[in-house]
Amino acid sequence: MQLGTGPVTRIDHITVTAPTLEAGAAFVYGALGVAPQTGGEHPRMGTHNLLLRLGDDLFLEVIAANPDAPTPDRPRWFALDRMAPDGPAKLSTWVISTADIHAAAAASTEDLGRIEPMSRGTRNWLITIPADGSVGIDGVAPALIEWDANPHPATGMTDHGLSLTRLEILHPTPSRIAALLASIGLKDERIECRLGDQAQLVAHIQTPQGLRKISL
């Protein structure tokens, strides 16, 4: 698939990082009133996750270092190695899906990292990961992902009636973020790049109890 021939990228999931899955689950439940379900383990990264459906092809992930897994010989993704044991859970990054990760990465105005194979259980995918495990552009850059097969993982998650209505990306230079998203073909009215004193992600999520938001 070639960039420019249609919508080739879309928001895939948003990611909450936490020192432990228990802390992450409590953070999400406090914000949204719904507990995420069990996900699985990422052997190459020494991490594990919890999952919460936000639509047919969109979900929220809670991710933490897995204390029962060997320490990887590389930095963990999403800056998890920089998280203090008593640090707060927070919305730390987001992930954009593409049918051609190599084309999208090549078109990007920002270096989103190397394209690497990853797995969780029976699912396999390609994803961009900076070599130092950081999240680019002061913590608001997305990762790119290309899933190995259909259906999307969200279809197998419990539907609690949650949906993402808006993702705010705050940054001192919002035009830089907008240029990146345009370069990889992301057109989504739910994504809003705004001027902010500091870089931050804010997700607005519709729940059965009303509109809630999740961020730092």
Rank of each mutant, 00 (worst) to 15 (best):
L3K: 03
P7L: 07
I205G: 10
V202C: 08
L112D: 13
G185M: 07
Y29P: 00
A106R: 14
T47W: 05
V28P: 07
L3H: 08
A104T: 13
V16N: 08
D56A: 13
N66M: 05
L52V: 06
P72C: 03
E41Q: 11
V202E: 10
K187F: 09
D148W: 08
F59P: 02
T47K: 05
A31K: 13
L51Q: 04
H42E: 10
T47H: 08
I63R: 02
L52Q: 12
R190V: 06
I129G: 00
T9H: 06
S183Q: 08
T109N: 13
P208S: 07
V202M: 11
S108T: 11
P85A: 15
R194Q: 07
T9E: 06
V202G: 00
Q200A: 15
V8F: 05
Q209I: 00
T165C: 08
P75S: 04
N124T: 15
E61Q: 03
M1T: 13
G24W: 08
G133D: 04
L216E: 13
F78Y: 12
R53S: 10
I145N: 06
N124P: 00
S92C: 07
S175G: 13
T38P: 01
M45F: 11
A179M: 12
D111R: 11
A89T: 10
A26Y: 01
G113W: 06
I145Y: 05
V28G: 13
V28Q: 10
D100M: 04
L52E: 05
R82A: 12
V202A: 03
A199E: 02
A99I: 06
R10T: 10
T9L: 04
L50M: 15
G185C: 10
T155C: 02
M118E: 12
I129D: 04
P151S: 01
K90T: 08
A203C: 08
P88R: 14
G33F: 09
G161K: 05
P70Q: 12
P172H: 03
Y29K: 11
T98G: 08
A23S: 14
I145V: 13
L50Q: 15
T5M: 11
A31S: 14
R10I: 02
D159I: 11
A65S: 14
P172D: 12
P151Q: 02
H160G: 01
E41W: 05
A149K: 02
E116T: 15
V34S: 02
T122Q: 12
G113F: 06
P36T: 04
H13K: 01
D159N: 15
H204L: 12
C193N: 07
K187E: 15
L60F: 00
